[in-house]
Amino acid sequence: MPDEITLSVYRGDKSGGQEVEYKVPIQTGMVVLDALHFIQAHDAPDLAVRWNCKAAHCGSCSAEINGSPKLLCKTRVDDYVGEVIHIRPMHSFPVIKDLVTDVSWNYEKLRQVPAFQPAIKAPFTLQQRDVDRIQEFRNCIECFLCQNICHVLRDHDAKDRYWGPRLMIRIAELEMHPLDTGDRLDLLKGAAGVGMCNITKCCTVVCPQGIDITDNGIIPLKERVADVYWDPLGGLVRKLHK
C-alpha cells in the first residue's frame, strides 16, 4: 500500500469554487474524515467540514466522495488506494463553504409535519412487533443523504412540490405508530407530494442506516394514499369496519 493518498477537496462558497489537491499520509484504517482533519491541522486550517461524533451516529459529515453520497466518517481511505479521492459538498443544497451546505430547508419541512398525537396517556402497552416498523424509521440520523440523492430534489430542484425521502420516513413513522390518531394523508398527497416519488430507490441505496426507505416507507405511504383516493371500494369497507 502506498504511504500517501491524494485528496481533491472542493474549496469555495456561494460565489463558486474549485477542487484543491492535498497529500495526506495514510494510516491504517483511516477514514476520509481523518484525512480532512489532517489537512485542517497541517495545510488548511479554515477548511470547512461539518462533523460531530465520528462514529456514524449523528449524520453531520455528509458529502460526495467520488460522486457517491456518503458519510465522511464511515468511508475508509483504503477503499480508494490508487485513486484520487474527490470530495465535494452535497449537490442538492446550497454551499455555505467548502463541504458545508445549507440544509435548513429540511428542518423547515420537519417543522411542518403534524406531530405525534397519542390516543392515550403514557405508559403505553405496545408489543415489540407493533414498534419494529417504526423503530426502523426512527433509526434515521438525519444526514440528508437521501434528500441529496433523490433526483426530484437533485436534478429537478422540486423542493416546492416534494419534501423528499427523509420527510416521507418521518411521516411514515407517525402514520404507522399504533397509538397515533393524526391524519397526514391529505398532506402526503398535497404539499408533501408523495406522488412525486417514482420509487427509483436511490434513497434506499445511499442510506447509511440501511433503512429500507422505499419498500417499507414510501410505498406503504403511496398505498395509504391509494386507499383513500384511488379505492372507493376499500374506503367503503374500511368505513363499515370502523
Binding site: 457517491s68 429537478h156 422540486a158 416519488c197 417514482n198 436511490c202 441505496v205
Partner: peptide, 22 residues
C-alpha cells in the same frame, strides 16, 4: 428519471406520478 443514482438528468420537466398517465 434517473438512469442511475447521482447521474444527472437531461430533461427539465418532471411531475413524477402526480399526473396522468403515471
Amino acid at each position: 428519471d434517473p438512469v442511475s443514482c447521482a447521474v444527472p438528468e437531461s430533461r427539465k420537466y418532471y411531475f413524477g406520478e402526480t399526473r396522468f398517465p403515471f
